[in-house]
Every structure is written in C-alpha cells, then in structure tokens.
Write a protein that binds this DNA or RNA. Structure first.
Lengths: 124, 124
DNA sequence: TTCATTATACGAAGGGCTTCGTATAAATGC
DNA sequence: GCATTTATACGAAGCCCTTCGTATAATGAA
C-alpha cells in the first residue's frame, strides 16, 4: 500500500488522528488555529483524499463525517522508508544515526533507545 | 538555508556527489544506467538547479561543468528535519526509534549507535 | 569547405497540488 | 413562509515539477 500523503493531506490527517472522526468544519476550525485557510479549500482536499482512499466518509447526515483510513504509524513508516531510500541508500540505521546526532536528546530518550537496542540484540 | 531538493534533483545530486564535477553528458549517462531519461530533460533540470543555487556551473568550455553547491550531509539534515517536523512532532529521537525498529540491523550497526549514545551522554 | 555530431537555450505541454469562487440544496430562526 | 446560515459539488486558475521538441551555435572529420 502506497502511503505518502502530501503536506496538506498530512495536516488534515493529523487532525483526524488527534480528534477522531470529524466534520470538515471541525478540521477547518482546527487548522485555522495555526494558519488561515479557506473552508472550501479544506473541503476539496478532503474530497480528493476520499477518492484516494486516505480517508473515508459517512454520508448519512448532511454534514459528512470523515475518518482516517491510514494510521499514523503506517504513514510514519511510509515516509521514513521513502527518505531512507532516497537519501540514505536504503540503510535505516544511517538515518537513525543522523537523526540522533542532529538534536539534543534527554536522558530518558537516550535510555529509551538503549532499551530498543537491547531488544534488537536479544532477538538476533 | 533551504535545502529540500525534489526527487529528480536528488538523483542528479547523487551523481555529482559520487563523481564530483561533471558534464551534463556524464550525469545523463549515469542516470541512464538505471532508467531511461532524455538528454535535454537532464540538461533542463540542471539549468533550473543552477538558478536555484543547488549547483553551480563553469562555462569556460563549451560543455559546462556542474558541481554541487549543497553537500550530501546538509541535504540529509534538511530532509530529515523536514520529516521530523512533518511527521514526528519535531522529535528527532522518535524518528530514530522508528527507523531503528523498522529494519534489521547488524551487530556492527547496533554498536555504532551505542557509541553515539555514549558520546551524547558524556557531553550532557 | 561542408556535413554530421554534440553542445546549450528555450518554449510549451501535461500532471499534480492547492486555492478559491460560485452554484445549489438543506437546515435554522424569526 | 422566507431570509439567513451552513452544507456539498465542482470548475478553473496558478504554481511547480518533469518531460520533450526544436532552434541554434560550436566542434570535428572527410
């Protein structure tokens, strides 16, 4: 399954993941908190996303209820894999190294990663 | 500095990073090994990249010599930061966790990451 | 010199994404 | 009932990316 939403689609998906099934009005209100955006713009985007299968809508009521058809984690995976392929020669651990080194991490985050490494070592 | 090349631009940059300063013909020949692509298509892309400042060209000779103006590592950083912002709430360590978990890693890779973690702990 | 080869320049088409204006229908309030 | 509000539908413009065709100039070979 191809899961590589555009920027605008991603913004909308974030709202749906956070709020759960929502009306266009809800999504528009949420997006408007951060930037100006027209109502029909959001509507159009969500209609297109429905055609693509990124969301599905319930048309029982006049105001259609939209819910995400792709999960946050599979979208993370899709976009991460894409970056790994395009920029890190297919090596995920090189991306991990880059991401780790590029930002300060809290001790909690560091130990969280160590725990994951431990798990991976056990299983190998 | 904004460093977020498109897909085609990235392919061309990969060739320049690998080969060093190159002619359009060189880049085209290299790309042709993997997929069909027209010579003038590559030329046009590289001309546009020059306008954007992604590459610079030396016009002393008839066949212009192009060289990359963005490094591989800064491009990696730009694209990684972008993904972190768009999909991981600005948290690079969450991306690292995701990347690590998504692929099997060799023991060497795992210890490489442990070394980086050690360094980061020392410095904090 | 003349013809074929090999460069760059450039316009334009086609597709995708984003945005918006307008049309229309349903619901609401007075 | 009737005007206002609030939905969806839809066409089209504008922008960017990609691709290609064609024009033109420089080079090289016979």
């Amino acid at each position: 399954m191809e899961t590589k939403p555009t920027n605008s689609e991603l913004e909308i998906l974030h709202v749906l993941w956070q709020r759960g099934p929502s009306l266009v009005r809800d999504v528009h209100d949420e997006l408007s908190k951060r930037r100006t955006t027209g109502y029909t713009t959001v509507l159009k985007l969500m209609q297109i996303m429905a055609e693509k299968g990124l969301v599905r809508r319930n048309e029982d009521n006049r105001a259609h209820v939209y819910h995400a058809m792709v999960s946050e984690s599979e979208t993370q995976k899709g976009l991460t894999d894409d970056l790994v392929d395009r920029m890190f020669g297919g090596s995920a651990h090189r991306l991990a190294l880059h991401a780790l080194g590029s930002q300060k991490a809290t001790p909690e985050e560091l130990s969280e990663i160590r725990r994951l490494l431990d798990q991976m070592e056990e299983r190998s």
